[in-house]
Structure formats: structure tokens, C-alpha cells
């Protein structure tokens, strides 16, 4: 059974003559325990795919299934026990007037856990923050710490799949390294499946086993990370992306 299966997925925005197809007949499968990456430029539809799976966009056609269960227009509460999402901007994704304790407590309560108090402490330990952060407000945390809280919130219902939408693009490279290490550790410990969106090929190459490259709403190429590292892309656009990313790293000397 695959963790995520997407068949012929198209997502539309707007109506009538203004209608625009943000995702065009996307097909891919993510195996359980796999880390799958979606890359592309802004406007390529990569985040829209993630939002469609999470149920944040309902104007789609095609078939999607998660852990063998086909998805409809509405998501059942059981879905959110299996699938959770981490968003791009840690400054915007936490309620500014809720403490960390309340953010995590709310999720745990919604998912029907009874030992909330012990679980909050454990979650904070798991993401490397510790109990000292429990009664802080988001403005008392740095960007990296906020993203750790967002990850703790996503882990609270003990999901099997985590959707990651550019989880480190708002962070400094040094903090990015810490968060990526944390995500790798959590996946190894809990056997999580990741579906990660990023514009940064370095990050995707570090985190993912297989990669889908998107351009103008279409998946133009699916490739293994080994192939990507060896720069053996078939599609011209993938080669262009790889070339840009390598050139911005390597010194022109």
C-alpha cells in the first residue's frame, strides 16, 4: 500500500474565462516511509498539490488516496490523525496570542488525547526545545524555535505522513541545517513519510529519495536523488534548474 497516490490531479482557480489550471494532470505515488520532493519555481503549482491533499483547496479533479483510502471533497477527522502539514512561514503559522502550551494543547484535545500535560512536555523534548519553552508566546521565540513548535504541533496527533511546505525557506542557513537534521531524525525514529515542497534543490537533494520537477503546473520529470546528484536529468527544464543551482554554489573561477 502506498502512502500517497495521485492520479490525474488537476486543480483549478477562478471561474469562466478567468479560470486557470494551477495543476495539470499530475501523477505520482509516494511509498510508505519514503521522502518525496516536489521542486519548481514560484507559480509552478507545487504548493497547490500539497494544499489539495491536505483539503485546503477543493476545486480539483482526478483521484487522490492516502494510505489506501480515497479522498473526497471533505476530510474526515481520521484523515488529520494520519496526515499533518508544516507551513513555510513560522512567523505567520502560529497564533500570536496563544502560548506554545495552548497551541499544542488544543491540537491534542481535538484529537482526543487524555494525557495532554505529559504529551506536551514530551513533544517539546522531541523537537529539541524542552519544557522551558512551554509557556512562551511566539514573539518570545526565534524563527527556528517557532518552526520547531510548528513541527511539534504537526507531530502531536502522531501522524504517519507529514506534508512539508518549504519548511526552511524563511530561516538562516545555519538554522536551516538544525531543522533539516531534526526532520531527518524524526523520520528515522518514527518511520514517517514526507512529502516536501521546496524551490531549493540542495535542500530537496539532502532530504528526499525521489523528486518530481514541476513547471507551469505540470510534472515534467520524476527522478531519483542519485540521478539528480549525478546531474543526469532528462528534461531540459530540470537541467536548467540544476545548472542554476550548481552555479550559484560553485565558484566561477
Amino acid at each position: 500500500m502506498s502512502a500517497i497516490e495521485i492520479r490525474d490531479l488537476s486543480v483549478y482557480f477562478g471561474e469562466g474565462a478567468e479560470q486557470m489550471r494551477a495543476v495539470k494532470s499530475a501523477n505520482f505515488t509516494v511509498a510508505e516511509g519514503e521522502s518525496f520532493g516536489l521542486v519548481g519555481e514560484s507559480g509552478s503549482g507545487k504548493s497547490t498539490v500539497l494544499r489539495a491533499i491536505a483539503g485546503l483547496v477543493d476545486s480539483w479533479t482526478g483521484e487522490m488516496s492516502v494510505l489506501g483510502t480515497p479522498l473526497g471533497r471533505k476530510r474526515a477527522p481520521a484523515f488529520f490523525k494520519q496526515v499533518q502539514m508544516v507551513f513555510q512561514d513560522p512567523y505567520a503559522s502560529l497564533h500570536p496570542r496563544h502560548t506554545v502550551d495552548r497551541v499544542l494543547g488544543e491540537v491534542l484535545k481535538l484529537h482526543g488525547f487524555s494525557d495532554i500535560d505529559a504529551r506536551i512536555d514530551r513533544l517539546l523534548d522531541d523537537v529539541g526545545l524542552g519544557k522551558g519553552f512551554r509557556f512562551r508566546y511566539p514573539h518570545q521565540l526565534s524563527g527556528g524555535q517557532r518552526q520547531r513548535v510548528a513541527i511539534a504541533r504537526a507531530l502531536a496527533p502522531e501522524p504517519r505522513i507529514v506534508l512539508l511546505d518549504e519548511p526552511t525557506s524563511a530561516l538562516d542557513v545555519s538554522v536551516q541545517a538544525e531543522i533539516l537534521n531534526l526532520l531527518s531524525d524524526l523520520r528515522a525514529e518514527r518511520g514517517l513519510t514526507y512529502l516536501m515542497v521546496s524551490h531549493d534543490l540542495g535542500v530537496i537533494g539532502h532530504m528526499c529519495d525521489r523528486i518530481a520537477v514541476m513547471q507551469h503546473g505540470e510534472i515534467v520529470e520524476l527522478l531519483d536523488v542519485e540521478k539528480m546528484r549525478a546531474l543526469q536529468a532528462e528534461h531540459a527544464y530540470t537541467r536548467h534548474l540544476l545548472d542554476s543551482s550548481i552555479r550559484s554554489v560553485r565558484e566561477i573561477s
Partner: peptide
């Protein structure tokens, strides 16, 4: 050196990134 090593490099993959 820490800043340089914390960047994930496509061509030279490492199992873990060096945290500063």
C-alpha cells in the same frame, strides 16, 4: 566555516548537516 558547512550541497551529500 560553520556557515559554509551548514549549506546542503547537491553534489556532495552528507547524512547530517553540520549544525553551527
Amino acid at each position: 566555516i560553520g556557515l559554509l558547512n551548514s549549506v546542503p550541497d547537491l553534489e556532495h551529500p552528507r547524512p547530517r548537516l553540520d549544525a553551527l
